[in-house]
Design a protein around this nucleic acid. Structure first.
Length: 822
DNA sequence: CGGATCGAC
DNA sequence: CTATGTCGATCCG
């Protein structure tokens, strides 16, 4: 699906509006320019509750950024150097494990829903159309996009942008059918291909490519579909590259496939033969999709899924792109690529990174040390993977489902009565789905969005798994009651309600569950006896509701007004988007709920001795007790951890932490300054905030090196610089002020090219102070790392054996220890 | 564990 | 009038 937010413009401080519209607008064609689009969106938006909420969210993001920047200010040079050391060690490992041997393909149907609708209704061709409703659009065709009409935009705003816009209602049944047709083709190339929604899929064609080499030509030969209404001339024209058989998705009908086919496929009359390369395979796939469905697809070919996905975006629509399986090709592709194009980097992350002066993937790489100090381990490692172009090289089948939910948006509901019956309906729908898959979960989550678009979730975990309507509702109802009470005496004014069940039992969990303290306590028979709980204060609503029970259920009433929701899908794609069914009216509402309430109140109450702190704990239920025990356990851990950190930081501030002796520095720096002179200064568009720090960093470094004579620091920098050069030989902009720009361009592909030592040298280990003879910096770095780890483990052993154990059994790297300074 | 947030389709 | 629905992941308290 095309994604309107992808190109979201966050270059402005008040990006709230810009985010909602526009992007690449081709001049000259009919349509609107950026400015007009934003103006119209602004007018339609300004003052709305929705907009106010957007502003609020934006403020929150800004606060996050502010916090991050404060954290950044506190980072010392030493911390940064240390981080650099750690991160670069990881870089080497990652680089060594780089796997370019797989061929992954990402297939992405062009403007899928819109294309299907155009195919099936010729009147829509040539017109700007969008698929969805007045309140939300799923996608638009390329014609409509010129007016700024995009996916995830409400229809009424789209109409203002493009008054002639035709809005076609969603028809999932149809899309599902087409999707199935496409999947049939894909399965021939990779039986284990991974569909991502209706219009996208990943394939691993590595095996297919091997087999294909031995295929006879006629197995790679495909015929034009002459049955298509586009007449028999079509294939002739197609072969000449004159026309595309696809519906007109875009005016400048650039059917790349035609060109591709002319070059690649050997075409004879009404058939085409495809070659054996990856490109040819993908052309073949796209050709077959188009022949079968009259729809075009774009594709990306690369050594891993992340790259393949980004490739499919490159020549969209109706095009393909390949990154050849070479390290340098990968890095070239990434060099100037905006991070926003990377799957997983969204609006918020983009903005945060931008605050650090990071816009492209190469900048992401350059700032790796800083990022490792500002972000969680998971985040910065992900950033590192991205900037190195690493991703999954195989398609793992998606595991067990983790949750199931259903939610609905409606016009304001503010009476408790309606809210409860709505909640029950949601639970009923959800229970039905749960039972279809035979799932039971322990956690029920209620989601509410009030009329100001503020979203709240409230969850409750119960001891025994739930799956029936009554079981789920029993939990959800209490959560809802609490929320209603919390705003009393005002009514709860909501526009959305949702119910989710999670915490399913998997095989893994069952084992784990047995050992867990929860089940330990649960299994102890002697500790539980029943106790009755006072009724919730919202009970009156249930009795009141019985009067209304002769009426139709809430959604039965609303249903007529909302015909649009009546689509459904094949079970495979549905996942909760079930059609509405006729419901029994909730005649037995009261009895049901009371029954369940009783069930809920079978709760234990006793005094326990906490096995951790040995204090007596009186608790209404086991959950409370368990929570206490958990907190106790956590408390101990936290205390210990804090001590370790204290210790670590004291060691960290040891003077002369990094005392490397080597002349390598001089070389690198000289080259750097040389090159800096030749740099195009105009290219260095700079965020003042970011370069402040790098500038400062540079100052500190030069101060240190001149005053304290610590060439070691420089050597470190030099080393890092060398890595950068290797990865991104020609940096384009940013950070020129740091005076440590790239020097030479190294061609090699193996990671050993990072530090090509020219002669033996003796370096002093900054940890153990011993002299280390070394031929290259890699082995020296390894020594330093081992030293660091040794030291840490020793300290830990003294401090806390428990921690040390888990610590040393992990892999030898502990990046986490360095990144956080409490 | 619970709640909020992000990101993808 | 009129700003989705569903799911997984992550972070923080």
């Amino acid at each position: 699906m095309d994604n309107m937010q992808k190109v979201a413009n966050s270059s402005c401080n008040d990006g709230v509006l810009l985010r909602m519209g526009l992007n690449d607008n081709k001049a000259g064609m009919q349509g609107l320019d950026k400015e007009k689009i934003n103006k119209i969106i602004m007018e339609a938006t300004k003052g709305s509750r929705f907009y106010e909420n957007e502003l609020k969210k934006d403020q929150q993001v800004n606060q996050r950024i502010e916090k991050m920047m404060q954290l950044k200010e506190k980072i010392t040079t030493q911390q940064l150097l240390k981080a650099q050391l750690q991160v670069d060690k990881l870089v080497i490992e990652l680089e060594q494990s780089r796997n370019l041997s797989s061929t992954i393909v990402h297939i992405d149907m062009d403007a899928f829903y819109a294309a299907v609708e155009m195919r099936d209704n010729p009147e829509l061709k040539e017109k700007p159309i969008a698929v969805g409703s007045m309140s939300m659009l799923s996608t638009s065709n390329y014609h409509a996009r010129r007016f700024g009409v995009r996916a995830a935009m409400p229809g009424f705003i789209a109409k203002r942008l493009c008054p002639h816009l035709t809005i076609v209602p969603l028809n999932f049944e149809k899309y599902g059918k087409v999707s199935k047709e496409v999947r049939e083709i894909l399965a021939e190339y990779d039986p284990n291909f991974m569909p991502m929604g209706l219009d996208e899929a990943y394939l691993n064609i590595t095996e297919h490519l091997e087999e294909r080499l031995n295929w006879p030509e006629d197995r790679r030969k495909f015929f034009f579909n002459t049955e298509n209404k586009n007449d028999t001339n079509m294939c002739a024209k197609f072969n000449k590259g004159e026309v595309s058989s696809s519906p007109v998705l875009f005016e400048d009908n650039t059917s790349l496939m035609d060109d591709d086919l002319k070059q690649g496929g050997l075409s004879v009359e009404n058939s085409v033969v495809f070659g054996t390369s990856a490109e040819e395979v993908v052309k073949e796939i796209r050709f077959r999709i188009e022949q079968k469905t009259q729809l075009t697809a774009s594709a990306g070919i690369a050594p891993n899924t992340m790259l393949a996905k980004m490739c499919s975006d490159r020549n969209k629509p109706n095009g393909q792109y390949r990154i050849s399986p070479e390290r340098q090709a990968v890095l070239d592709f990434l060099k100037d690529l905006p991070i926003r194009k990377v799957p997983g980097i969204g609006k918020v992350t983009e903005k945060m990174l931008k605050a650090l002066g990071i816009v492209t993937c190469s900048e992401l790489y350059q700032q790796r040390a800083l990022l490792s100090l500002l972000f969680s381990e998971i985040s910065w490692r992900n950033f590192l993977d991205i900037s190195l172009g690493l991703g999954s090289t195989h398609l793992e089948k998606d595991g067990e489902r983790k949750s199931m939910s259903t939610e609905r948006t409606f016009s304001e509901i503010n009476t408790a009565e309606d809210q409860y019956s709505l909640c029950r309906e949601l639970c009923r729908d959800l229970a039905q789905e749960l039972q279809k898959e035979g799932l039971k979960g322990k956690t029920v989550t209620l989601k509410l969005k009030n009329v100001n678009f503020e979203v709240k979730t409230r969850a409750s975990t119960v001891l025994s798994s739930v799956s029936t309507e009554e079981e789920v509702f029993a939990v959800a109802k209490d959560l809802l009651a609490t929320e209603i009470d919390s705003v009393a005496p005002h009514p709860l004014r909501i526009r959305l309600m949702g119910v989710r069940v999670s915490g399913f039992l998997t095989e893994e969990e069952k084992k784990y569950q047995q050992k867990s303290i929860t089940s330990f306590l649960k299994s102890g028979k002697e500790i539980s006896f029943l106790r009755h709980q006072p009724q919730k204060s919202n009970q009156e609503y249930f009795t009141k509701n019985s009067e209304a029970s002769h009426r139709q259920s809430f959604f039965d009433q609303k249903r007529a007004a909302r015909q649009l929701d009546s689509e459904n899908l094949s079970p495979n794609e549905t996942r909760g988007k079930q059609p509405f069914h006729d419901r029994k009216s909730s005649a037995n509402f009261v009895e049901e709920t009371e029954e369940v309430t009783d069930l809920q109140n079978s709760i234990v109450c006793k005094i326990f001795t906490c096995p951790v702190c040995f204090e007596e704990q009186s608790s209404n239920n086991l959950e409370g007790l368990n929570r206490h025990i958990d907190e106790c356990l956590n408390g101990m851990l936290v205390k210990d951890t804090v001590e370790i950190f204290k210790n670590d930081s004291s060691r960290e501030s040891t003077p002369n932490f990094l005392q490397f002796k080597n002349e390598y520095v001089g070389e690198c720096q000289k080259n750097k300054t040389d090159q800096l002179a030749g740099l195009d200064q105009s290219a260095s568009v700079s965020d003042s905030s970011t370069n402040n720090s790098t500038e400062k960093f540079g100052q500190i470094m030069s101060e240190k090196s001149s005053r304290e004579r610590q060439p070691s620091n420089l050597s470190d920098i030099a080393r890092n610089v060398c890595i950068e050069q290797c990865l991104f030989p020609r940096r384009t902009s940013q950070d020129n002020e740091d005076h440590f720009d790239e020097t030479e361009h190294t061609e090699g592909t193996s990671s050993s090219c990072f530090f090509e030592a020219k002669e033996d040298r003796v370096l002093v280990c900054p940890v153990c102070n011993s002299e280390q003879k070394t031929t290259n910096l890699v082995s020296f770095n390894r020594h330093v790392d081992i030293c660091l780890n040794k030291g840490l483990i020793q300290e830990l052993t003294e401090k806390n054996k428990f921690l040390t154990k888990s610590y040393s059994t992990e892999n030898s790297r502990k990046p986490g220890l360095f990144q956080r300074f409490s």
